[in-house]
Design a protein around this nucleic acid. Structure first.
Lengths: 317, 317
DNA sequence: CCCTAATGTGAGTAATTGCCCATCAAGCGA
DNA sequence: TCGCTTGATGGGCAATTACTCACATTAGGG
């Protein structure tokens, strides 16, 4: 039996009304205020709330053609499953370009009725994706972190990607309470000897779907910027052939994991090269192209969401 | 072979960039102007153009739950195929509420790769739908008008629904060059004796999909407002049991076409009660509820796109 | 070659919006 | 009950945006 009743107007309900009147009907905030019988300031707050709550989605239809061409070229070249290329527009952060597409892909997975274990990495691109997803109910799935979430300074700031997703979709989440990179391999092993950590790691290894960012090893490496490696370590690993990194695990230009540098102390779970398990890379930025190409080559990731410029660079490499 | 080249920036391309920077990245027009090296005024014009060209789509996620409940109730009650209920928000025109949903449904049909004959009615709701559709290439389909497009004053203003769709999707269109309602049945028959008119009528009768508005017969009847019937005719048909109208053809509360009044002189093609051929009604407004319910009952339409309030009213009737 | 119309551009200005702050009501512990 | 904190509300103001107007540039026709 369907519940069909006019309940009291929720606070968010008013926000939705105001947001709709503003963004879709194109009314001014004064008109909305008059329409709903409230002050203009309140109308403004409702509109802002509608946007903040992610009730309003803005999408751009353009240059689908060129982007579809790039998608099929990437699929052919690397044998990809999922592949999406967003238009590169303006000089703004390319992460913003791909966030909506990445969010749409994650939402597609979350809408699957059967329970899935979804493994997530961290990084700026992942964070952009999370901010762009629409809240939806998906309590049937489990969200598991691939990467340790204890930063060098002891804070758990990297916890927030998986926590925010979990918040938005009401799915249980399993953070990995381990340093991203431990000072010694012994300490790393000590963490992994703990039963709760092992359970999460096992869960992550058995994930049905993987979403990760891709880090480059050039001078603007995220690992360096976030203080997980020193410049010396970075240079050493580059000398050993490192071109990129996924979930903190460094690999060479053929996409093969290396056994040097921080790879002996990385706390998270390696993304295995498994063609049967979707592993979607979310990454954009010209300097990431070699890292993305390498990860695609060996199948560390077998799906890609990127922007037009990066796609061209990956194909050119 | 994929074309992967950086061609010159189209004028619309700039509009897309500016629109994206403004609506998605949230930059101010001053920032955009600096970013793209143009004047603020030009940036403003580009943003306006992006919106005017329909490059920017705004969507609202809310109350999906309540609306889904109404959809399933309508489906159960009337055995519908397609059914979409949009949230009623604010006191604005309900046509605006349903236009995006209606447009999405039409786009879904247009994206079918196999050639289809799509029959279209007219009216305010249909016009709203047309304005909301995204331009896409669908030259494989044929668009045919169900209803005459010659108004009482001789103008062809009702031509525009089908013409605008055709414009946006580049599909061939077949308007019905016949008065909406002729002064006498003899004149109507004369028009239908003409070979070109007959061809279009045959095409309309054989349509694979039908999209129509639903008119009410109350004092705010569209037929009356647009001058197609006089108040005397309206009253006479109401006395004979008329509650609604689809494509100009009047029916009673059981959804059975009547043989009185203007029905002997209507120029267009009747929508047959054929359960195997999708016929989607696009209609919202409390006064339309009895007409919608009647049309659903007999299967003149077997799909419905409406708003929340109208859906409640239809279910209550 | 000149004229004209059409399209595009920049400046100015009025309207609209975002934000800070004073105020107020409600909740809560002493 | 009182005083405090918390969160919501509307006024006012600066920032931002939309619109109008005058001018420049260019294509087409006589």
């Amino acid at each position: 039996m369907s519940r069909i009743e006019n309940s009291d107007p929720t606070p968010q309900d008013d926000a939705a009304r105001a947001g709709w009147l503003y963004y879709v009907a194109g009314m001014t905030q004064d008109q909305i205020a008059a329409e709903l019988g409230i002050s203009r300031q309140r109308a403004q707050r409702l509109v802002a709330k509608a946007m903040a709550d992610g009730l309003i989605h803005v999408r751009l239809n353009h240059r689908i053609g060129a982007c579809l061409d790039l998608e099929s070229a990437l699929r052919d070249r690397f044998g990809l499953g999922r592949c999406r290329v967003s238009p590169s527009l303006g000089g703004a952060d390319p992460v913003l370009s791909i966030a909506p597409a990445a969010a749409a892909e994650l939402e597609r997975v979350l809408r699957q009725p059967d329970p899935l274990t979804i493994a997530l990495g961290t990084g700026r691109a992942m964070r952009g994706m999370v901010d762009a997803i629409t809240p939806l109910e998906a309590p049937q799935h489990r969200l598991v972190s691939l990467i340790g979430n204890i930063a060098p300074d002891g804070s758990a700031s990297f916890f927030d990607v998986i926590m925010r997703v979990s918040d938005k979709v009401r799915a249980p989440h399993y953070p990995m309470l381990v340093p991203v990179i431990s000072p010694t391999s012994a300490e790393r092993d000590a963490f992994h000897a703990l039963a709760p950590v092992r359970r999460v790691a096992d869960l992550a290894r058995a994930a049905d779907v993987v979403f990760v960012g891709v880090g480059q090893m050039s001078d603007d490496a995220p690992l360096l910027a976030d203080g997980f490696v020193t410049r010396e370590e970075l240079d050493q690993m580059r000398a050993a052939g490192a071109v990129g990194e996924v979930a903190g695990w460094v690999f060479d230009s053929a996409g093969q994991y290396l056994d040097v540098g921080t790879n002996t102390r990385t706390g998270g779970v390696r993304v295995a090269q498994n063609p049967d398990r979707p592993a979607v890379g979310i990454a954009a930025g010209a300097s990431k192209a070699p890292a993305i190409a390498a990860a695609l080559k060996s199948g560390i990731i077998n799906g890609l969401i990127t922007d037009e410029l990066t796609a061209r660079a990956v194909l050119a490499s």
